[in-house]
Design a protein around this nucleic acid. Structure first.
Ligand SMILES: Nc1ccn([C@H]2C[C@H](O)[C@@H](COP(=O)(O)OP(=O)(O)OP(=O)(O)O)O2)c(=O)n1
Ligand SMILES: [Mg+2]
Length: 1023
DNA sequence: ATCCTCCCCTAC
DNA sequence: TAAGGTAGGGGAGGAT
């Protein structure tokens, strides 16, 4: 089994011709289950580069889990995220692999759903409020003074949540800091930190939360030595770097292994399945395109008969037609490792042939080859039906211990995915995309122009003839041929069509009685929703416009929505119907034109240019007709926006909703855009909006300047794109994308300026520099390995640590804190938009001047803002620089002065703005802290520290390499050797046991990590 | 300076 | 109960 596994990895390496790019080191991107980005060879172009077929790892792992365990207990909301997180990255993935081979995931669970809420405005606001209250109340009742003089800052997710820790600490005499401030925080509590953060906090006492808990239960302050989170442990990560460093040998080929990664891995994972059909054929594609070597999996389970009758809804994707394009297949092959079945491939790649064939089986197989999406399904079914090895189920006691009440079980993977709306819509999106491209390709082929009929278009033309009595240009011939990029960028007209509250509309088809009521599509049953809906944490996938008026939004938790709208009626999902309607919707639009770009199952762009030429209809006529047809065919209303680029079209749609249409004239885009809130720009979500907001505030007197920057950028960009044309007229699809980018870039540029020029003033810091230098040197001595697992065996502890470090789930406490201070979005905030209406700017100006001095001072101080920059928009405040310098010198008191000023100025400001200020300050503070750390690390303690570090690192490396060599037999390629050995090592310690008998030992390790829904992993050791 | 990795953000 | 998936993209800072 080990060998199989290693072979698989090796095969992967060979097949995919590592390294994937010029200087690639092994990194998470390579093992991500999605494409990753890189350089085009040219400058700065971000490109996706397909790399190994780790797309399938997820399924493999799931397969493993569900094959080997009768139960996997999942707690609310973490399940899918777990999958993502687990498989997210290379080290992580590999770690997981090695871990999974050793450990069994029994359960993971975690925290609150969407905490902080998916609706940061409300959730964050409420949370901040509650925090405040709680803080006050906590301060009142003091039980002991265990933590006197100790000030903690909790970073990210911790096992007792930060709330609990805060309570514990404050109740026992300590203080709790909401933001990390070096001078104030004596201990940082964390269980998991991103790498960057580890570096930043290297010189701090980073302690595991147990320290708090244990101290409280012990009734005294336990020395934190044994609770330090980090020590000098070489990570898997590090060793992988060793691997990559020897990439010169990369291209040596070993003899081609005859086993595919997946196959053998699955073999090894599910030893009880029959192996008769588990052959693997290497498919060297002999098509014209890149001769990528593909591994075909003959998954015997995949084509088991008993799978067929239980295909989930979107398994019927042949609705969308078969894919008979060979190059399609090739590209699909290129995209990922398909679980291609021999059956489906026997007659070469034209899977269209399969369509007429008998039996669901073939049907299914053709799906598999034409629609990669369906692989999921098949595999899922495979999980469901493949024989379950007779392993003892996970120790129930563990389960019950680990899963608090409310945990639930899912017994197979498909059950989960089948009910996941997000899963479905992402599948449908892919379906739609491939459907459109397929039709387009068909129509591109010369001679096949007649394949696709345009009944809709014909109708439209008839209409025109009768109405205007004008014979339009005869559409036959060119009209039917799809030519990508047929029209000039500057004459294009885009329409964006979006079904109104899609899920609800579909539901209303069969439930007309519900029309007019506030509806919400959710998993809740209607009566439950009525009775106890207030506590429900079920997501609302889609709500009707009636409900939206009450403030309900898509994605809200039902409980929350119910509070906003007491009459809210829960409507169940009907995934099949959604898919059906979506298909009809696309067909209707495609019956007009093929110049369509699919956005999602209920949303698409149409490029009207060609259609207008052919039919000589105006955009309005076309769109009206389209919408009418859509309604006739689907019984669902849709809205449509038309504009000269996609962005404008999209925004116009927003304006048009519901059931309307909106046109933005050519040349009027600017005016139109002006009225758009930043928040509404696609691509500007919660976080960006937030940043924007604080930027606006930061540069507060300066919204105008911001806008002109934006303007300039737009112009330069526009002129770059097409030299001769007028500015906004030539925004084509790409330009429109850039338009949103420009927003970011505008902000970003200002940011960068600040950061960059920060170097200059910072050099003059000496006071701070010294302090940090001090800390740094101390940190190097502080980093002593500690025994962190007394309960678990030493080996497990090591692994665990590696695991933990390897996982390194993203955790940004700053963002968490950040969110707490959000303001409710419903209140109008003049300052939050980039709009330039005079009122707004005036308001902003007013606020700005009011707090310009203090704010600027602090901001420049904190972020080391560029002097020039400051001057630019702070012409009135020339003393700004002075302030800047002054404050630089007494940085210790910075926070104090900040709070003072806050109090002084803030009272006069609207509460939202107060929050914004606070937020901005805090963010800056964090950032600055880190920056200063860096700077002073470099500047002051350059030599010493670096030397130390380097020695450390090289020592570590050597040790790793030596270890590797000692433990494993020889393998030819060094790079493979290093990688494989490490994996091997990781596995080896328990691998023998692994094979002998599969049984779960009682000692388990629990692991906490923090992602959005931070989760806790409980792993038990294989025995 | 260039390119890569990690982490983040968004949309439906 | 509940089913927070998936793909696209960007930027900061690290490695070379
Ligand atoms: N967080 C979300 C957002 C959307 N959807 C699903 C349900 C929606 O019906 C569908 C389409 O999303 P839209 O953004 O187009 O929103 P609606 O179509 O519901 O409303 P409208 O387009 O009228 O604004 O996607 C979802 O499940 N979860
Ligand atoms: Mg919609």
């Amino acid at each position: 089994m080990q060998n199989d596994w290693i072979k698989c990895i090796r095969q992967e390496i060979n097949d995919f011709k590592w390294p994937p790019s010029k200087n690639a080191r092994i990194c998470s991107d390579h093992f991500c289950n999605k494409d990753y980005k890189g350089y085009d060879g040219e400058r700065k172009v971000m490109l996706k580069k397909a790399f190994p077929c780790f797309q399938d790892i997820k399924k493999v792992i799931l397969s493993y889990l569900f094959n080997n365990f009768n139960k996997i207990v999942l707690n609310n909301y973490s399940q899918c995220h777990f999958i993502n997180t687990t498989l997210k990255g290379g080290y992580k993935t590999l770690m997981q692999f090695s871990e999974i081979s050793k450990y069994t995931i029994v359960t993971y669970d975690l925290g609150d759903k969407k905490s902080p809420s998916n609706f940061p405005p409300e959730g964050g606001y409420m949370k901040a409020k509650m925090d405040k209250l709680e803080k006050q109340s906590c301060a009142k009742e003091k039980r002991s003074n265990i933590f006197r003089g100790i000030s903690i800052y909790v970073n990210g997710y911790t096992d007792p949540t930060s709330e609990v820790l805060k309570r514990l600490v404050t109740e026992n005499g300590g203080t709790y800091q909401y933001y990390y401030l070096k001078s104030r925080v004596s201990h940082i509590i964390a269980t998991n930190l991103p790498k960057s953060k580890i570096a930043h906090l290297r010189d701090e006492k980073v302690v595991r939360p147990n320290w708090i808990v244990d101290s409280v239960s012990a009734g005294k302050l336990i020395p934190c030595q044994n609770y330090l989170l980090y020590n000098q442990h070489s990570t898997f990560f590090d060793s992988l770097k060793d691997f990559t460093s020897s990439k010169s040998v990369m291209n040596l080929n070993t003899s081609k292994p005859s086993t595919s990664f997946l196959t053998s891995f699955e073999n090894s994972l599910s030893p009880t399945t029959t192996t008769a059909n588990n052959d693997v054929t290497m498919d060297v594609s002999n098509d014209e395109e890149a001769p990528a070597i593909r591994v075909k999996k003959v998954g015997n389970e995949l084509i088991d008969d008993h799978l067929n009758d239980q295909l989930p809804a979107y398994g019927e994707a042949d609705d969308w037609g078969e894919d008979d394009e060979e190059d399609e297949n090739v590209s699909e092959c290129l995209r990922s490792t398909d679980h291609l079945q021999d059956v489906s491939r026997v007659s070469n790649s034209s899977s269209a042939n399969a369509e007429g064939d008998d039996a669901t089986q073939l049907n299914q197989s053709s799906n598999i080859s034409s629609e990669p999406l369906n692989r999921n399904e098949n595999l899922r079914e495979h999980h469901q039906h493949s024989p379950q090895p007779q392993l003892p189920p996970a120790n129930p006691s563990i389960i019950s211990k680990q899963s608090p009440a409310g945990g639930f079980q899912i017994n197979n993977v498909s059950e989960f995915f089948n009910k996941s709306r997000l899963h479905h819509i992402s599948q449908w999106k892919l379906d739609a995309k491939s459907y459109v491209t397929r039709l387009q390709k068909l129509a591109t082929k010369s001679g096949s122009g007649g394949v696709h009929k345009f009944p809709g278009r014909e109708k439209l033309m008839k209409l025109k003839i009768t109405e205007e009595d004008v014979v339009p240009v005869v559409p036959n011939g060119d009209g039917d041929v799809y030519i990508p990029e047929a029209s000039n960028g500057d004459e294009r007209v885009y329409a964006h069509i979006d079904l109104d509250c899609f899920f609800v509309s579909v539901a209303l088809i069969n439930r007309p009685d519900l029309r007019g009521k506030p509806l919400a599509v959710t998993h809740l049953r209607a009566d439950d929703a009525n009775r106890q809906g207030f506590n429900s944490k079920s997501d609302i996938a889609c709500c009707s416009y009636e409900a939206r008026q009450a403030g309900v939004q898509n994605g809200m938790l039902f409980g929350h929505a119910k509070k906003l709208c007491n009459d809210l009626v829960a409507v169940p999902y009907d995934f099949e119907a959604y898919q059906r309607v979506s298909k009809v919707f696309y067909d209707v639009i495609l019956s007009f034109t093929l110049y369509v770009e699919a956005v999602s199952c209920d949303e698409l762009f149409v490029e009207l240019t060609q259609l207008m030429k052919v039919t000589s209809a105006t955009a309005e006529e076309i769109v009206t007709c389209m919408r009418k047809d859509v309604f006739e065919m689907t019984q669902c209303t849709c809205s449509c926006g038309v504009g000269s680029n996609m962005l404008v079209a999209r925004l116009a749609t927003r304006k048009a909703k519901p059931d309307g249409q909106h046109f933005v004239e050519r040349g009027g885009e600017r005016e139109f855009m002006r009225g758009v809130q930043v928040q509404d720009l696609p691509g500007i979500g919660y976080s960006l909006h937030d940043k924007l907001k604080s930027m606006n505030l930061v540069t507060c007197g300066d919204v105008l300047r911001q806008r002109t920057t934006l303007h300039q950028l737009q112009q330069t960009f526009g002129s770059k794109m097409s030299e001769a044309d007028s500015f906004l007229a030539d925004l084509s699809k790409e330009v429109s994308r850039r338009l949103t980018l420009i927003n970011k870039k505008g902000k970003h540029i200002t940011l960068k300026v600040k950061v960059r020029s920060a170097g200059a003033p910072k050099e003059s810091y000496k006071y701070m520099g010294h302090g940090i230098c001090d800390n740094v040197s101390r940190s190097s001595t502080l980093k002593v390995a500690t025994n962190q697992a007394d309960v678990i065996s030493r080996e497990c502890a090591n692994l665990f640590r590696t695991f933990k470090i390897g996982i390194q789930i993203s955790s940004l406490e700053s963002t968490a804190q950040h969110r707490q201070h959000l303001t409710i979005s419903s209140s109008s905030r003049p300052s939050s938009s980039l709009s330039t209406s005079t009122n707004h700017t005036n308001n902003i100006r007013k606020y700005a001047t009011k707090m310009d001095a203090p704010l600027q001072r602090h901001i420049t101080n904190e972020s080391g803002a560029d002097v020039n920059e400051t001057l630019h928009f702070n012409d009135d405040n020339n003393n700004n620089n002075n302030n800047n310098n002054n404050n630089n010198n007494n940085n210790d008191e910075f926070s104090l002065s900040m709070s003072q000023i806050d109090l002084e100025t803030m009272r006069e400001l609207p509460s939202e703005i107060q929050n914004e200020i606070r937020e901005a300050l805090c963010n800056k503070k964090l950032k600055q802290q880190h920056q200063q750390n860096d700077v002073h690390n470099n500047i002051v303690s350059n030599n010493k520290n670096n030397n130390n570090k380097q020695n450390d690192v090289s020592d570590k490396r050597e040790r790793n390499i030596i270890d590797s060599f000692n433990n494993v037999e020889k393998i030819q390629q060094q790079h493979q050797l290093l990688l494989l050995r490490h994996i091997f090592n990781q596995r080896r310690s328990s691998a023998q046991v692994d094979e002998a008998s599969s049984r779960i030992e009682s000692n388990r390790i629990s692991l906490k990590a923090q992602t959005k829904p931070s989760f806790q992993l409980s792993v038990s050791r294989w025995n």
